[in-house]
Amino acid sequence: MRDKRSKFVELAEARVNRAIKDIRLIGNLANRGAYAYEDDDMKKIFRALQKELDAAKARFSGDSGGKDNEFTLG
């Protein structure tokens, strides 16, 4: 049982830290001096992120979740 726990901690820390880093990089896209985007683009990005967070949370509650979809703005 301890091996499963230590593996969970190891993977969770690495994956959550990687996700936090990537979310910060997404935040960098808000720089209108470097990028052109519409408010609708921003809404789509955060809707997709929230959907995936909700699906991940549901899986911890025993729900198998939906199928994987790749994000696109188009």
Rank of each mutant, 00 (worst) to 15 (best):
M1P: 02
M1Q: 10
R2E: 09
R2L: 10
R2W: 09
D3G: 13
D3A: 15
D3E: 15
K4H: 12
K4L: 15
K4T: 12
R5S: 05
S6H: 08
K7A: 10
V9W: 02
V9C: 06
E10K: 13
A12M: 12
E13N: 09
E13K: 07
A14Y: 11
R15E: 14
R15M: 11
V16N: 12
V16I: 14
V16R: 14
V16M: 14
N17G: 03
R18T: 13
R18F: 08
A19N: 08
K21E: 15
K21R: 13
R24C: 12
R24K: 15
L25N: 14
L25M: 12
I26V: 15
I26D: 03
I26T: 11
G27A: 06
G27R: 01
G27K: 02
G27E: 02
N28G: 13
N28T: 07
N28E: 13
L29V: 06
L29N: 03
L29E: 04
A30K: 11
A30L: 10
G33T: 04
G33E: 13
A34Y: 08
A34I: 12
Y35K: 01
A36P: 00
Y37C: 00
Y37R: 00
E38F: 04
E38K: 04
D40S: 12
D40E: 11
M42S: 12
K43P: 02
K43Y: 09
K43S: 11
K43F: 08
K43Q: 11
K44V: 00
K44L: 08
I45K: 00
I45Q: 00
I45S: 00
F46S: 02
F46N: 05
R47A: 15
A48R: 01
A48F: 11
A48L: 03
A48N: 05
A48V: 03
L49H: 01
K51A: 15
K51T: 15
E52K: 13
L53M: 10
L53Q: 03
L53S: 03
L53T: 01
D54L: 10
D54K: 09
D54Y: 06
D54N: 13
A55D: 04
A55E: 02
A56R: 02
A56Q: 01
K57T: 07
A58I: 03
A58Y: 06
A58K: 10
R59S: 06
R59Y: 08
F60V: 14
S61W: 09
S61K: 14
S61E: 15
G62S: 06
G62M: 04
G62R: 03
D63W: 03
S64A: 14
S64C: 11
G65K: 01
G65S: 04
G65R: 00
G66Y: 03
G66W: 05
K67H: 09
N69G: 11
N69M: 06
E70I: 07
E70R: 08
E70Q: 10
F71I: 02
T72G: 02
T72V: 07
T72A: 08
L73F: 05
L73R: 02
L73Q: 04
G74Y: 07
G74S: 12
